[in-house]
């Protein structure tokens, strides 16, 4: 038992990423503030990055593909947030609110 606690393995990192991903998912679904939902979406990307880096460290420590892909994911996450804020700001100029429930015409 002490070995499982003090010997940090891939399992520990996967559990941490799973908890962070779940919290981010809850934030995206439950938040009524658009900005808070977008911040929660970044938690999802951070959880995925932890998985990438942990797998690269424990399984693929020669080629380090997970490390490289994690860098691409960080760039994509930043771009996604910028685009989301741009769209949100353009919508905000029309509606003047940050409440998700006021943007019902986006349902299609």
């Amino acid at each position: 038992m002490a070995n499982l606690v003090f010997n940090i393995t891939l399992f520990h990192y996967l559990i941490l990423a799973l908890i962070l991903f779940t919290i981010g998912l809850l934030g995206v679904i439950l938040s009524k503030n658009i900005i808070k939902a977008l911040i929660s979406a970044e938690f999802l990307i951070s959880a995925v990055n932890i998985n990438f880096v942990a797998f690269a460290f424990f399984v693929d420590s020669a080629k380090l593909t997970g490390f490289i892909f994690s860098i691409f994911t960080i760039a994509i996450g930043a771009v996604e947030l910028a685009i989301a804020f741009a769209i949100f700001y353009l919508l905000f100029k029309e509606k003047k609110t940050v409440n998700i429930n006021d943007y019902k015409e986006l349902k299609g």
């Binding site: 940090i8 990192y13 970044e42 990055n49 880096v53 690269a56 994690s70 960080i74």
Partner: peptide, 18 residues
Amino acid sequence: IFMLLNAEYNAIIQFAVY
């Protein structure tokens, strides 16, 4: 956490971007 996994490169990018 990235630094614990010997990924200083990713950690620096994480600090700078996120």
